Computed example of a mutant assay.
Amino acid sequence: MKVSEIDMVTPKSVEECLYYLSDKEKTFRLIAGGTDAVVQMKDDIRRPETWINIKRIDSLRYIREESDGIHLGPLTTHTDIIQSELLWKKADVLASASNEVGGIQIQNMGTIGGNLGTASPAGDTIPPLFVLDAQIELSSIGGKRVVPIIDFFNGPGKTVQQPGEMITNIVIRPQAENEIGIFEKLGPRKAQSISIVNMAISLKMGDGPRECLEGKIAFGSVGPTIIRAVKCERMLRLGPLTNDTIKDIADIAWKEVMPITDARATAKYRRSMTSSLMARGLYRLMKRWDER
């Protein structure tokens, strides 16, 4: 089947979309920016009987702060995120990640909901969503449920999202005044590349010199899903984040991950680069904190 020979519907509202999804006699797949789905379609991967084009549901594209956190619509593009003053101020780790997604064309088309739904372990925006404690709202014709991001992924390309459900909202925790974050990525070339390793760090700092009260670290592309570096997170609180302490934390980082060898890199190389990214990220964060 050619790409041009597909069955597609284009609902104009969430309610209409959920009505289509409730039909148990057919298989459906949502498409928004299509930056991942079109490629998979051409390779005959995850091809449904009917595609549901949700790009025109404007109510799913927003960035706003509410009492319970910052809300992101699933159709919010990477460009929307990059251009958001709110996110650069209160979720800079996510804005930095979107800034590293492909080129301008991909940033204009690709969506945060699409990154979640594709469930690639190399998705650049997913580690930041982990350190920002994202909550994923899933809606169906029967109602809504909210899933913490730590419980959302089951494996490469697999999530807890059930047939008939769609992502309708994403809520992230705004960073506090004493919190700093960073996104680091290693790709086979400078731009428009899939990550060999990526990482997000968010640190809450104390009053003492380089005193870290707590931190969250998430790695991508080094396991079947995103990996939280819990051993490294514990070490963040053992004392000031001096250059020697950062080196000790980086030396442990490679033990946290479970990479594979594929066309982009060997497992050994990924482990080595995990430690290198950890050191680079922490050094850069401490330099920023020292300059405040």
Rank of each mutant, 00 (worst) to 15 (best):
G142E: 15
G142N: 14
G143S: 12
G143P: 09
V146M: 06
V146A: 01
P148Y: 04
I149V: 13
D151L: 01
D151R: 03
D151H: 01
F152K: 01
N154G: 09
T159H: 01
T159D: 08
V160H: 12
V160C: 15
Q161L: 15
Q162K: 14
Q162A: 15
E165A: 08
M166F: 04
M166G: 04
I167D: 03
I167L: 13
I167T: 07
T168Y: 03
N169R: 10
I170N: 07
I170F: 14
V171T: 14
V171K: 10
I172M: 05
I172C: 05
R173H: 04
P174Y: 09
A176D: 05
E177N: 02
N178E: 01
E179L: 07
I180V: 12
F183A: 02
F183N: 04
E184I: 11
P188I: 14
P188M: 14
K190I: 13
I194D: 15
S195M: 09
I196A: 06
V197T: 06
N198T: 07
M199N: 02
S202V: 03
L203E: 02
L203C: 02
K204L: 15
K204R: 15
M205F: 08
G206K: 08
D207H: 12
G208P: 09
P209G: 04
E211K: 11
E211H: 12
L213V: 12
E214H: 11
G215S: 10
G215K: 04
K216T: 05
K216Q: 12
I217N: 03
I217T: 01
F219M: 01
S221Q: 12
G223F: 03
G223Y: 02
P224N: 09
P224G: 10
T225H: 10
T225P: 06
I226L: 11
R228T: 00
V230P: 00
V230T: 08
V230M: 07
K231M: 13
C232D: 02
C232P: 03
E233H: 00
R237T: 12
G239V: 04
T242N: 08
N243W: 12
N243Q: 15
D244C: 13
I246H: 12
A250G: 13
A250D: 11
A250C: 15
A250V: 11
D251C: 12
I252N: 07
A253L: 00
A253F: 00
K255Q: 08
E256K: 00
E256D: 05
V257A: 00
V257H: 00
V257R: 01
V257P: 01
V257K: 06
